[in-house]
Simulated scan of single mutants.
Amino acid sequence: MALAACLFLALESNNTSAKDSLSPIEQYFGQLNDASYDDIGLSYREKAGSIRRIYDESISADQHAEKLASISDHDLKLLYESAHLAAFYTHDQKYLADMQLDLAELVRRGLDSDNNYVDLYATLVSQRKFDDARLLGKQHPAQTFKPLPSYQDLTESTENGPSVLTLSEGQHGLEMNRTTVDLTSPTTQIVVISHPLCGPSSRAMHDIQSDPALSKAFISHARWITPQDGNANFDVLARWNNQNPAFPMSPAYRQDDWPMIDIWATPTFYFLQNGKVVKTVSGWSGQDSRHELEQGLRQIGLLPLKP
């Protein structure tokens, strides 16, 4: 999203007149960009909803081929960035479709850039359109896209609810399977939002591992989940899982399928009873966080209550 911010900063620096001198698309993009940085007191769904509302009310009307043909080059680039921003925060396929529509017009004008394809590839991966991402890679071999593992959906078509991408080594390399998660099972009473590249997540895991009571509970009852994103760090996840087999991480297939999770910042610990969250612990600060985890384990019956 850094490119989007840079575009808007450049836009502001080149326009010294009043804000009303900006085109409507420039103003709407500014509103979207501001909303993307508004984290104060907002859950994941609230922030996504705010971005969706601004986009749908202000930008969607311009996302039609006949309108794009007559729009300025500058505004066309901002429309693409707006669709990318909306897709990034909402994971909604309709914004991916707008990205593809805008990119087609950028290509027609000879204005497409490497960053456009990098953003599109990441969006396809984040929305779990792995075949389309592979096709994009074949169409643009000069781009250094991260290769994707082979993929198979092992869920039933009628199944709803949380699911993850489990990673394993197969005969032909890394394999990725979509599997469901039963949050009412005794083996999933703790959900940890984490990531191998997150320093606090790594420190939390090592502190938990070094504490016999915490380690026993987390090994038997925790599910470590990474947020839905388009970074394609599946090799990093596989390496983490090989090095930490007691604490394997799996990417969430789709965040919206986890309605009980409203904070996807890492690390965040959710303690569940019968699939419902009874305690949440965010961040990691060493001993204080350990005490909070112990409290959560007592609430769900995995540690005895203090006398």
Rank of each mutant, 00 (worst) to 15 (best):
M1D: 06
M1P: 09
N14R: 08
S17I: 10
S21N: 07
I25S: 00
Q27M: 12
G30S: 08
G30R: 01
L32A: 12
D34L: 15
D38R: 11
G41M: 01
Y44I: 03
R45P: 01
K47H: 05
S50G: 06
R52N: 08
A61H: 06
D62S: 13
Q63I: 09
A65D: 15
E66M: 11
L68A: 12
I71F: 09
S72P: 00
S72F: 02
D73R: 12
Y80H: 02
Y80V: 02
S82Y: 00
H84I: 05
H84P: 04
H84S: 12
L85K: 03
A86R: 02
A86C: 01
F88A: 12
Y89P: 08
T90G: 11
D92S: 08
Y95A: 15
A97P: 09
D98H: 03
Q100E: 15
Q100W: 06
D102I: 01
D102T: 00
L106F: 07
Y117D: 04
L120H: 09
T123M: 10
K129Q: 02
D131N: 14
D132Y: 06
A133T: 01
R134Q: 05
R134L: 02
G137I: 09
T144V: 05
K146S: 13
P147Q: 12
P149N: 04
S150R: 09
S157V: 01
S163W: 07
V164Q: 06
L165I: 14
H172W: 15
M176N: 05
T179H: 13
T187K: 11
Q189M: 00
Q189G: 00
V191H: 01
I193Q: 15
S194G: 06
L197N: 12
P200I: 06
S202A: 10
M205R: 04
H206Q: 15
H206F: 11
P212A: 12
S215I: 08
K216T: 13
H221T: 02
R223S: 14
P227T: 12
G230C: 03
N231C: 08
N233H: 13
N233G: 14
D235W: 08
A238D: 13
A238Y: 07
W240Y: 03
Q243M: 10
A246M: 09
A252M: 04
A252K: 00
Y253W: 06
R254I: 08
Q255A: 14
D256T: 14
P259W: 04
P259R: 03
I261A: 04
D262S: 03
I263S: 12
W264C: 00
F269G: 01
Y270D: 03
N274G: 13
K276L: 05
K276S: 00
G283C: 07
Q295H: 10
G296L: 02
R298E: 06
I300C: 08
G301N: 03
K306C: 12
